[in-house]
Design a protein around this nucleic acid. Structure first.
Lengths: 189, 189
DNA sequence: GTCTATATGCAGATAGAC
DNA sequence: GTCTATCTGCATATAGAC
């Protein structure tokens, strides 16, 4: 892998683990096995490198999720697949995590890829919920945009619960709870 | 207010806004209007002060939420009140935010109050969901622990969506979506 | 492209005067 | 209790040699 690529990947990892505020150029260089001069030759500085890394992370996330959303199955099945898909739960979401970073939120440029990715997730899920409604799969009156927000929030919040407790159980419980609430046709007690 | 109290309160604010990693002793002193020597006279250092501040924030959060949970209303009404209560949405949750901080997660002592608070929230909400089931308010087969996790996750994740987009709308959409899914007795399309 | 040298200022304290 | 002085090392670069 090229030196710029190693620097970008190291930055992606560190942003995921420690956020923008907690990531130093020195740590990036060490993780990438690159020297000081090398890093500043290829990138203008920490913000430039971080922006490149965030964009790549955002793009990879859309790629991964997109394959699930475009896959086979009913609306409920695809939502279920999304919620239950394998994740590194205790590491949290590499995109959502950045929303808790004050410097990312303060910079429209750094926040933009985050906003776009979360917005895209909500949009795709809203389409899937709408499909479920059209197919008569969901029999209740549901607002697709609202339910989509709930799904994304449950995932993002699930990471918070899991990291608070140090266990993935809480994430799974939240996903199960949402799927039970969403489940078509079992209104009998 | 006493100097220790001002230091604690300044630390609470900064931890909320910038996290542990992003908060320096100097920033705390400036926000509190206290000198270097003063801070180190009253507290052993940054971890000691942060622990005190986190405990206080956790305690205040339980106090606030407890009043809602113990208030009047059906289970659905109290859950609804909790989800729709006034919040400083774009600032996020002062407790949940800490789960994204690597140093808080790395320290069992700093993480403990966070874990306890989120665990307490889940426990109280599970009791409320159970009450709803006992009263015949929810007619579906719901696992109280799972639904409680979903509720807390929706709130925590709602902050992520709101901060990503820079608007409180996404938080409200997630809350509405969850309430629609939870709503008793409107299974007709 | 990569390396080493150099620079300013902040992080996170400790020590001792007042 | 609070203040000022002092300390080591890291943050975040820039400059110029190789």
């Amino acid at each position: 892998m090229s030196t710029p690529d190693r620097l970008i990947e190291a930055t992606q990892e560190l942003l995921w683990e420690r956020g923008y505020v907690g990531t130093s150029p020195k740590a990036i260089q060490q993780q990438a096995g690159a020297g000081q001069g090398s890093m500043y030759h290829h990138f203008a500085g920490k913000p430039d490198l971080a922006l490149t890394a965030i964009r790549r992370t955002a793009s990879q996330m859309r790629e991964t999720a997109g394959q699930l959303f475009d896959g086979p199955g009913t609306a409920y099945e695809r939502i279920s697949t999304y919620l239950l898909r394998e994740r590194d739960v205790l590491r949290g979401c590499p995109v959502g995590r950045l929303t808790m970073d004050p410097e990312v939120i303060a910079s429209d440029e750094l926040r933009a890829p985050v906003d776009e990715t979360i917005g895209w997730l909500r949009g795709r899920l809203a389409e899937i919920v709408q499909e479920g409604l059209d197919q008569g799969e969901f029999t209740r009156l549901l607002a697709p945009e609202d339910v989509a927000a709930t799904i994304v929030a449950t995932v993002q919040g699930g990471y918070v619960l899991a990291r608070a407790s140090g266990s993935t159980d809480a994430f799974d419980a939240g996903a199960r709870g949402l799927l039970a609430l969403l489940a078509p046709g079992d209104t009998a007690a």
